[in-house]
Design a protein around this nucleic acid. Sequence first.
DNA 1: CACATCTTTCAGTCTTTACTGAAAAGACCA
DNA 2: TGGTCTTTTCAGTAAAGACTGAAAGATGTG
Lengths: 198, 198
Amino acid sequence: MELSPLADAFIRHFGEMGSRWGINRTVGQIYALLYISGSPLPADEIAEVLNFSRSNASMGLKELQSWRLVKLQHLPGDRREHFSTPDDVWQIVRILAEERRRREIDPTLSVLRDLLLMKPGNDDERDIQLRLQEMHDLIELLTRWSEDVQKLETQQLTQLLRLGGGIIRLLDLKNSLPLIGTKRRKPNATAGDGADED
Amino acid sequence: MELSPLADAFIRHFGEMGSRWGINRTVGQIYALLYISGSPLPADEIAEVLNFSRSNASMGLKELQSWRLVKLQHLPGDRREHFSTPDDVWQIVRILAEERRRREIDPTLSVLRDLLLMKPGNDDERDIQLRLQEMHDLIELLTRWSEDVQKLETQQLTQLLRLGGGIIRLLDLKNSLPLIGTKRRKPNATAGDGADED
DNA sequence: CACATCTTTCAGTCTTTACTGAAAAGACCA
DNA sequence: TGGTCTTTTCAGTAAAGACTGAAAGATGTG
């Protein structure tokens, strides 16, 4: 099987981007290939098309499975395992966000919380804890928000995102109705910081 | 200069997380150190505290500067350059988001657009382009949204994030006012997908 | 169960990236 | 301008990570 120039360019780019991430080049390529492939592919075909060893494909697919980014299925009349990405692009995004939260955010919050529970030995440590608290609150705010909006229906989420900065008009509207606005304010969080990547 | 156990634990963790990213361990450590340090530090002290070579510190700081994550300043009576992180945690987040957009998202969108401009040679390529279009629209939607809300004042942004999923009540409210709601809909984008990390 | 097909594992090798020390370049001052 | 302090560069080396082929392990099938 040969790749069209279109497919080839996409796969190449995805591979490079992958390596700028934690993910290695070949894993990125596998994912790109599966994404544009109309049908599930077996490991040996992936290895052949992308021009690396069968065992490398096996390891890459294992990693992608651990990220829940590919799913395995059997096709009738073929003993080989076939792999594919979720059909719905939104689903991919949701999974990515969840896994990154689980692997990167949660451990970090956990470390921060542990450090914040320590009794400061001196003023220096007290200052450090203040900084850590800021970081903690910011990350938590962003994470909570992200978890929350991901529970929305795709249709609602789309509407929300399309609104962009226009959302502020709704907030202003809300603020002009003080009886509604004041009721829901929570008494936690110092200043609220936001770490957001796109 | 010695690190307190608190500082040490934080720096270590940040180093590990950094290497899970594209950023290497020592760069992560430098950043963590500057973040919790109350005052700007010169390169040689960074190298000493973190226990690596002066030249390594130089390279790490250069990288952090290219990310605009540290700024350089001179202290009176000291010829050495001193480095520090922005004071405002929100500022850090904004910078991170911008840089990642510039380095990762924009090139990807650019590649996708180029590929979408190509004339499909056959049905296969046409199908691939459909998939790429989905990805493109999703990334663009998320990026636009992110750019947009980052223009908000920190105070407004905080309010928005605190609202979390509750935002949907405002959307519902908006939708119940059809004259306002229909006016702003744009006619572009297939289904809108969102790739969002936290 | 013997055979065929497919998948995983892993020791060894190759490639890439990180890090260092020494030397060069730059900045400031008298 | 020469001398001192500081930063950057870079060739070489060390460490980490990616990839392979061969062998072992699974999973059927007749």
